[in-house]
């Protein structure tokens, strides 16, 4: 990597951290909130990138984990206030985060056992179907608001930190993002990450080399789900509202868009993609409430006309099979 690139990347990270704080200082609190949301979505995109980018597994259901994480904050807080489910009724942030991570890991493990048996378009459809299953499940549970969702009355409580303070909420989100970007980078460059990229390039070859590719894929799938679940827990705390809408497949599509636009299998890609998405969404939605129209056209345009197609970004030297 050339040093100029490193400088640019460091400057970008610094800007993501400092610019919102400065703007907030000058009274533009709106941009701080925007940056918090950006950081949280970027965390989810980093999680998705681990399997989509490095592993070549195109999941169209990753918004499910955002929902799981957010409900893992909302449900204990709900019971803490209204009684019932004494085991989890709490506003303790550590407990809620642990619940979010555990539930995400469990969901990823169980669905992964099924969907990782198949490839290509089957995989896309099945991840979508499982997310939709969770969507309908949440709609059917009236205690947690069903279709309408649920307001989280109390944010997660931590010693010394108050998520009620927007600046602290932002700092927690953005520092988590940096930490997770670093962590996924470490994973990608470890032996595990190399095997994962090997599987993406040619799974049959990796099997011949003696790797149990299913286990590697499942492990990556679970880690990816856990990262998105964590992002979901932050999202619940940020919006203080949970609803099945968070799992809608359009949300999963937006996550995919971020990862692919930013550049798959790169450390900075998901962050760049999330920044692009937030900027596009913000600019378009101030122009028109029908911002999905230009956004959709833009998406089609990018897919059709970006030179060599997006797969030129996806494939690094090696043709993926599916």
């Amino acid at each position: 990597m050339n040093p100029k690139n490193t400088v640019a990347k460091s400057l970008l990270l610094l800007a993501v951290l400092v610019v919102p704080l400065m703007l907030n200082l000058f009274g533009f609190a709106f941009y701080l909130d925007l940056a918090t949301r950006l950081s949280i979505l970027a965390i989810a995109a980093v999680g998705l990138n681990l399997i989509l980018g490095y592993g070549g597994m195109v999941s169209f259901g990753h918004a499910a984990y955002l929902g799981i994480g957010a409900y893992a904050v909302g449900i204990p807080a709900h019971h803490w206030l209204y009684g019932g489910m004494d085991m989890i009724a709490s506003t303790n942030g550590f407990l809620q985060i642990a619940l979010a991570l555990f539930a995400s890991a469990l969901f990823a493990f169980l669905t992964g056992l099924v969907c990782l048996k198949v490839k290509g378009v089957y995989f896309i459809m099945i991840t979508m179907a499982f997310a939709q299953m969770l969507y309908y499940l949440l709609v059917s549970i009236s205690e947690y608001g069903g279709d309408d969702g649920l307001v989280i009355d109390t944010r997660s409580e931590f010693p010394l930190i108050s998520l009620d303070d927007p600046v602290q909420m932002f700092l927690v989100s953005v520092l988590s993002l940096f930490l997770i970007m670093w962590g996924v980078r470490r994973i990608a460059r470890s032996q595990f990450g190399m095997v994962l990229e090997g599987i993406k390039g040619n799974e049959a070859r990796m099997i011949s080399l003696g790797y149990n590719t299913f286990r590697y894929k499942l492990a990556a799938y679970v880690i990816s789900g856990v990262i998105c679940g964590f992002a979901g827990a932050l999202l619940g705390n940020f919006t203080t509202f949970i609803s099945p809408e968070m799992i809608d497949w359009a949300r999963s599509g937006e996550l995919m868009f971020m990862v692919i636009l930013g550049g798959v299998a790169t450390t900075m890609g998901p962050l760049l993609g999330a920044i692009t998405f937030i900027v596009v969404e913000e600019v378009l939605s101030t122009i028109t409430v029908y911002w999905h129209l230009p956004f959709g056209l833009m998406l089609i345009g990018i897919v059709l006309f970006v030179r060599g197609g997006l797969s030129s970004l996806l494939e690094r030297g090696q043709k993926t099979d599916d």
Partner: peptide
């Protein structure tokens, strides 16, 4: 590839 079908 299928990924682009899905996005498009």
């Amino acid at each position: 590839d299928h990924l682009e079908h899905v996005l498009g």
